[in-house]
Design a protein around this nucleic acid. Structure first.
Length: 104
DNA sequence: GGCCTGACTTTAG
DNA sequence: GCTAAAGCCAGGC
């Protein structure tokens, strides 16, 4: 599709994140790459923060490059985020996500 | 309209 | 293995 020409980076990011299946997670860098800008990982985090599409964009399924949970302005902070992912079937290794099995 | 900040990642020393 | 710096996007003032 030619969405790339009409959709802005943020829209693409939201779309990519919304495509993350349950029980799986993606890294900011991964989302940035899929959105078209590998170096825009920082922008991805910002987009998750503002997140105008909270219900359709599971920002809690987006973690740092090493699987660590960062940020999350939602209720419970990173702890609530961890529990959410745990309930969805994401494997955790200590305080980080086991990317070897839960990475998209 | 310009400057600063921020849920990051990667490469180099 | 750790620290430092650069690169990107959008929002707020």
């Amino acid at each position: 599709m030619k969405a790339s020409l009409t959709m802005t980076f943020k829209d693409k990011v939201y779309k990519v994140v919304s495509l993350i299946p349950k029980g799986k997670v993606a890294t900011y860098g991964q989302v940035a790459r899929l959105a078209g800008n590998a170096k825009a990982a920082r922008a991805v985090g910002l987009l998750m923060k503002i997140n105008p599409n909270a219900p359709i964009v599971p920002c809690h399924r987006v973690v740092a490059a090493d699987g660590k949970l960062t940020g999350y302005s939602g209720v419970g902070g990173v702890e609530g985020k961890r529990k959410m992912l745990l309930k969805e079937g994401v494997t955790f290794r200590g305080d980080k996500v086991d990317l070897t099995v839960s990475r998209m």
